[in-house]
Structure formats: C-alpha cells, structure tokens
Amino acid sequence: MALLTLSSPHSKGSNRTANMMRWVILMCIPGLIAQTWFFGWGNVHNVVWCSIVALACEASVLFLRKKPIAFYLNDYSALVTAILLGIALPPLAPWWLSLIATAFAILFAKHLYGGMGYNPFNPAMVGYALVLVSFPVAMTTNWASPGPLLELGLPSLSATVASIWEIAPLADAYSGATPLDLYKHEIAQQTAEVVRANPIYGDFVSLGWEWVNLAFLGGGIVLLLLKIIPWQTPFAVLAGLTLPALVLGWDYDQFTPLSIHLLSGATMLGAFFIATDPVSSSTTKLGRLVYGFGIGVLTYVIRVYGSYPDAFAFAVLLMNFAAPFIDIYTQPRTYGYAGAKRGAKAKENS
C-alpha cells in the first residue's frame, strides 16, 4: 500500500478558531448578566433573536454559495457577530431593528466580501452603524433605565418581549437616555455638579453602566490571559480614549469626564470584544497599538464633538479602513535585519 505523504509539520497544536470564538462568547456572559441585572431582559432577547437571524442568514448564504454549511457554522463566527450586536443594540430596540442590523452584518458586511476571514470591516459594527444612521430615533429612545437601582423594578420578560415585538409598549419610565448622551446635552447649560446630580449617575460613575463595563473588562482580561485576544488593541483603545480626555477634556463643566468615558457606553465591550476582531483589525503588534489608539481617539472625538451619543461603531469602521495600510507600515524587524521594513515597496532592496 502506498505511504501517506504530507508535508511538514506533521504535528499540530490543539488551538482552533472555533475554540477561540467559543471563549469570546463565553466571556461575554458576565457582561450580559450585568446588563440583564440592571436593564432587564432586552439584551438577552436580542442576543437570542440576533443569533437566530445570523445563523439563518449564514446558512442560506452558504447554501447559495454551495459551501458546506455545517463546517462553516461550526466556526461560531456568525454567532459572535450576533451576540455582539445583541449586546450592543439598545435593549428595547424593536425586533426589525435587530433583524436589519444582523442580516446586513452577515449578508453584506461578511459574505459579500467573501465570508469568514475576508471581511475588511467588522460585520457587527457595519450592522450597528447602518441602523444608527438609518433609524436614529429608534436607536436613541430604546435604551432601558437601570430600573432596580432607581427603585423602579424591571419589566417582566413577557412585557419586554411584547414591547420589542411591538405588541404592547412599555411604560415610558422604563426607557431613558444613556449617561453619555445626557451629560453631553446637559453640560451645555449646567455645571458638572448639577448634571451629575441626575440619579442615573448614581454615587460612583453611572448607575448600572459601570458594572456592565466592569463585567466586560473582567471577561476581556480573561481572554487576554488566555491569549485569545492580543493585549495591544484594548490597551491602545483605552489609552486613546484616556489621553484626549485628560488633555482636552479636563474641564468637566464643559466635557464629559474620563470616568464616564471609560465606564459608560460601549467602552469596555468595544475595547475588548469589538476592536479585537482579528479579521478587520491590524495584524502586527505595533499595528494593533496604532489601530487601537486610533479607535480610542476617534471614539473620544465623535463622542465629544460629534452628534452621536456613542461612537464606537464609527471609530472601529474608520480604523478598519486604515488597518491594511497600518499593517504595511508596522512590519516587525525580521531576524537578521538591521531594521524593520516600512511601506509597501522595498527601496533598500534594489
């Protein structure tokens, strides 16, 4: 019988892409629990609903593209996109909003570019940005209030689902502005002290949001320790957000304070779970620092000077554009070379 001849290496480590994706999903759970605890069942519903939509879209596209469906569904990448969207979208966003965001993410941002591994933009953020631009009202009025902390209680699961599916609306008290949004609008007329007297800021940074962000930070650190995500990206994102907040935004009577920037909105989720999407991020170590820093700075700029309450999606997408360029200029120095090569073309080579 003929011998089996394969090229080296014959040995293979145990790490698998699906495994990495599973860890990302797993480490989202603490944050999701915190979200549910403070803001109700909305995000859980959205995660489930987005997952169904994402898997259905993924499967149908794979069918159309004549690719093995089970093989690709098993990489969990569609699920990660869906879960990130479910977490990022407003908890009380209507069902069609999540549907549009997810379907667009999977169909357009992912598969029209060639599917897993070929998408230049983070699919979840493409979906998010699409609905943010197209449906600004639905995207700003459906944020839930941290009910339990306001001694308001949470709407039941069935009431939440009925609201999302537009069967019976919830009482207005259950929804409210986000701390980021509120501060930006109020500070124009008030001092910092007055603004922060609003109960949604609580005693610490901002009710509920701070715990959600800390939960995502915890999950992210686990991923970091497991080397599933590189440390450079989240570190640079947070640095990029912190630096302008300290230099430009030190006057809290004019600008949102650093603590709210860091522990409110999508900051930790973005830094550890979204900016670290390897496919659309820069792939070199130095490049990830540049890429992450760019996201941080852009997030700050859009949050403070732009008209959107949060800015993570736009910042990520803008830096996605730059990632291939960053890669070219951040090659590491190879063994046996005096210095690293920069740029696309080797002039010193000729």
């Binding site: 599917g115 897993m116 591994g117 590189p230 390897p278 792939t283 070199t284 990830r288 590491p332 063994y335």
Partner: peptide, 21 residues
C-alpha cells in the same frame, strides 16, 4: 479554515516574520 489574521503565527515565528501576511 479561513485565516482570521489572529496573528498567533507571528507570535510563534522565530524569524519574526508575518506568516499571516
């Protein structure tokens, strides 16, 4: 499967190349 540009290969490369690229 598709390359997801995770960069683990670059971390492992003893020649400090960018295998993913």
């Amino acid at each position: 499967q598709a390359c997801i540009r995770c960069g683990l290969c670059a971390d492992a490369c003893p020649a400090e190349l960018l295998p993913q690229q």
